[in-house]
Design a protein around this nucleic acid. Structure first.
Length: 830
RNA sequence: GCCUGGGUGGCGGAACUGGUAGACGCAAGGGACUUAAAAUCCCUCGGUCCUUGUGGCUGUGCGAGUUCGAUUCUCGCCCCAGGCACCA
């Protein structure tokens, strides 16, 4: 081996050396220390699918920079990691390999933990948790029971997607064009009993709190608001002609009620049967309902359903004008929203308009547009905007806005209607007919009904001695040792609930458990969660913008109302990072463009991989993976390494107590150093723009090379070089910690960089003493001036007018105006 | 259809509150070192025109506008990505 080889950047040796040291010394372990300011940084925990992918690399690299940066800023940083370990892939793998899902899961966890450690992330591994661990899910079961006792959980029968072949319920996203994603068989609607969390009780709070989440991207808040989908309107009763009872509708446009010319109700509406009875329409309506059910399920989400309906044979009475209007069952009316019945105003609602034209139903205009007159014969689409009421008896002449209020109040006074707010958000159905999930801790007793498992009997453990069979059906309902139990109230024979919880429940509270992962007396240790929560910065993929984040917000409020937490919102700041793509598309096996982090770590080392994933794009944008770009990142680290090695003598000798003497080159480097500290600090602090932070450090390193290179005219004071190099290492540490620790040690430091202070800049040193002033004539750049920073505006103007190029372009035209912008430019208008 | 983002060199991306468009990196081309290659170092690098200069014109999706000056602000349009989608 030659000396040159000894000085080469050996990332394999360096990275494993520091990783071992960090692990052995528990460098990143934190404790609750109220004398220090806390900072809780969290990245979304992974599903242990087998190996980490580039999305994880990016997510966790971003998080690690923030954790290390905050730590150097003096915060007591909580930065934990764990495993979202329940879920269907484990069951499928278990079937395939004839084993237990736990075995597959824990093997994956071991492997992936090792991968994360090889990336050098600064986690406090003492707080690691896996949601499939009974010590975790037992507390989830306790939450369930507490919520049940408080009325926040209930059971109801709903229609679900059922796959007969797989013997399971499928989530909506697992039904592809009406067929099961796994076996391609037709999915059937099926009525099933399931457990629900009353998230709708929190709809208003979840919505209104959105405006307080100033640290969240507007995009995510908009998505959440839309998902909650609040709409304000009225509920109005329409008596049914010739029958007992009434049809209640929800409308956001009570002002258009005089224009209602028919009613449309969902084909599965409970009144349908009664409405068509004895009218001769029974058969036809029943057939229509069946057809609609099938069609809806088959329908691709992107194409619009043809509007269809059928007359039920009955009429109802508009309570405002006494008009008798026909009731139709229509395929576009949803039973789940509002009341399942709609008053149809074809003149002012596009869907109703299309429907009315198709079935030849009258169109009555009741809102007159302010600018143009419209009439019912000539209009070609509904007018949905505001206007003035016509054809509306006493309400004529009112604006649509005030009529909404007046018409609703009228109904309220007369007792046939009221104000009503509806939400698109539905209660959260959490029952899954699956094995690998947290058992729902309930007991069904024939005599006493449904009962919660007594709290002191928790956890309800998943059996460990079974294997899921090939049918894909959960073994729990057939496993007597699991389901057979006694009733907590009458002690008779009873049956355990065999459904498990949606895995989104685990991820709805894991962030709180990290505050006290080993606490055995309850789910959350009060003083710990009060110290650490809320999460100061949460980082994860934008694909979780609705479900996970909404559920976690809801669960936080539920835990608060159960007395476990004092906070209202779990995540103060949210960063949603973009996808990692390659060749312009998502990485996927079928496209053959998947990049495996392991290959990269082996070829380039973790620091290079981290550096490139931070450098290639700002975090919120998608990252286009480029193999050549990785070479560039690797080259940069080598360049720093080599520089420090060739200047080791300069860097390790000498005392830097007093202010050093500076020549021009020295001043240049000194200034650049302080400018870089300023730029990097701001880029991290303001918006996590690590790409520009890294490019700033690259510029500093380029300057270091140019002032010390063979072309350099003068020798720079070694103290200035030492300052530049030390700053470079400190600034890069959060991004590429291994090489920085190594170089820090090489230049004579003993402390781990994690205990070093983040560098500060001297504004005086960062100040430019010479500026380039741009000279424009009529807004076009014509010349440049080098001036000292303290030049007066008058002198600047004078110099500009004397400039040869300026004179040339002004020619003999008179000067009309001279605009002087301090430190920037002079524009001569001629 | 509605709601969010976003359109800048061959590519990823920079540009503070309206003030030098293209930082930094990649790719490409040229050169140095070398027997050679790799590595490294240096130079060029939006387009175009000519009289080759310390040059002219032009250029941030398209079209207008405000301004001394617009990638940045306003209006209209086109395209791309993501979300929601018969929600009454």
């Amino acid at each position: 081996m030659t000396t040159r080889d000894n000085n080469r950047y050996n990332f394999i040796a360096i990275e494993s050396k520091w990783q071992k040291k960090w692990l052995a010394e528990k460098t990143y372990k934190v404790t609750e220390d109220t004398s220090q300011n806390k900072y809780y940084l969290l990245e979304m925990f992974p599903y242990p699918s087998g190996r980490i992918h580039m999305g994880h690399v990016r997510n966790y690299s971003i998080g690690d920079v923030v954790a290390r940066y905050k730590s150097m800023q003096g915060y007591n940083v909580l930065h934990p990691m764990g495993w979202d370990a329940f879920g269907l892939p484990a069951e499928n793998a278990a079937i395939k390999h004839n084993t237990h899902p736990a075995i597959w899961t824990y093997e994956n966890i071991d492997y992936m933990k090792n991968q994360l450690q090889r990336m050098g992330f600064s986690y406090d591994w003492d707080r690691e948790l896996a949601t499939c661990d009974p010590d975790y899910y037992r507390w989830e079961q306790l939450f369930f029971i507490k919520m049940y006792k408080k009325g926040m959980v209930y059971q109801k029968i709903t229609e679900v997607n059922w796959c007969e072949t797989c013997q399971t319920v499928l989530a909506n996203e697992q039904v592809i064009e009406g067929e099961c994603w796994r076996c391609d068989n037709q999915v059937l609607p099926r009525e099933m009993n399931g457990w629900f969390f009353k998230i709708t009780d929190y709809a208003e709070e979840l919505l209104s709190e959105c405006s307080n989440l100033s640290g969240w991207p507007e995009k995510v808040l908009t998505m959440q608001r839309n998902w909650i989908g609040k709409s304000e309107g009225a509920e109005i009763d329409f008596p049914i002609d010739g029958l007992e009872g009434k049809l209640t509708v929800f409308t956001t446009r009570p002002d258009t009620i005089y224009g209602a010319t028919f009613m449309s109700i969902a084909p599965e509406h409970p009144l349908v049967e009664k409405l068509c009875k004895g009218t001769g329409q029974e058969k036809a309506v029943e057939g229509f309902a069946k057809e609609t059910a099938i069609e809806r399920r088959r329908q691709k989400p992107e194409d619009e359903l043809d509007k269809k309906g059928i007359f039920t044979g009955s009429y109802c009475i508009n309570p405002y004008n006494g008009n008798k209007i026909p009731i139709y069952a229509a395929n576009f009316v949803l039973m789940e929203y509002g009341t399942g019945a709609v008053m149809a105003v074809p003149a002012h609602d596009q869907r109703d308009y299309e429907f009315a034209r198709k079935y030849d139903i009258p169109v009555v205009i009741v809102i007159q547009q302010d600018s143009v007159e419209i009439d019912s014969a000539s209009i070609e689409c509904a007018y949905e905007g505001p206007g003035t009421l016509i054809n509306s008896d006493n309400f004529n002449g009112m604006s649509s806005e005030s009529a909404k209020v007046a018409i609703t109040e009228f109904a309220q006074e007369k007792g046939f209607g009221k104000k009503r707010t509806t939400y698109r958000l539905r209660d959260w159905g959490i029952s899954r007919q699956r094995f690998w999930g947290a058992p729902i801790p309930m007991i069904h007793c024939e005599k006493c009904g449904v009962q919660p498992v007594p709290e002191n009997e928790l956890p309800v453990l998943l059996p460990t001695d079974i294997q899921p069979d090939r049918s894909g059906r959960s073994p729990l309902p057939d496993l007597e040792s699991f389901y057979k139990t006694s009733c907590p109230s009458c002690s008779g024979v009873a049956r355990r609930e065999t459904d498990t919880m949606d895995t989104f429940v685990e991820s709805s509270w894991y962030f709180a458990r990290y505050a006290c992962p080993d606490f055995t007396e309850g789910p959350l240790k009060k003083e710990n969660v009060d110290y650490w929560l809320p999460v100061d910065q949460y980082i994860g993929g934008v694909e979780h913008a609705i479900l996970h984040l909404l559920y976690a917000r809801f669960f936080t409020k539920a835990m608060r109302d159960l007395g476990y937490l004092v906070i209202d919102e779990p995540f103060s700041n949210l960063l949603t990072q973009g996808m990692v793509i390659k060749d312009g598309t998502k990485m996927s096996k079928s496209k053959g463009n998947v990049v495996d982090p392991n290959d990269l770590i082996e070829k380039y080392g973790a620091d290079t991989v981290r550096l490139f994933s931070l450098f290639a794009a700002p975090p919120e944008k998608s990252l286009d993976w480029s193999d050549k770009g990785v070479d560039g990142a690797s080259r940069f680290l080598n360049r720093i390494y080599r520089f420090i090695h060739t200047h080791l003598e300069t860097l390790t000798t000498g005392q830097d107590k007093t202010a050093p003497e500076m020549n021009n080159a020295g001043r240049l480097l000194h200034r650049k150093t302080h400018q870089t500290i300023r730029k990097v600090t701001r880029d991290i602090e303001d918006n996590f723009h690590f790409n520009t932070a890294i490019s700033a450090v690259m510029e500093l390193v380029n300057t270091l090379h140019s002032v010390t290179g063979t072309e350099a005219k003068e020798e720079v004071n070694p103290a200035i070089i030492r300052e530049a190099v030390k700053s470079t290492i400190l600034l890069l540490h959060p991004m590429v910690p291994h090489i920085c620790e190594e170089l820090w040690e090489k230049i004579g430091h003993q402390n781990s960089l994690n205990r070093e202070k983040w560098p500060t800049y001297d504004p005086e040193a960062a100040k430019e003493d010479e500026l380039t002033i741009v000279l424009q004539v009529n807004g076009k750049v014509r010349s440049r001036l080098q001036v000292s920073a303290d030049i007066t505006e008058e002198d600047l103007e004078h110099m500009a007018l004397e400039d040869e190029k300026v004179k040339q372009f002004v020619g003999d035209k008179p000067i009309r105006k001279v605009i002087v912008v301090k430190k920037k430019l002079v524009n001569v208008v001629a």
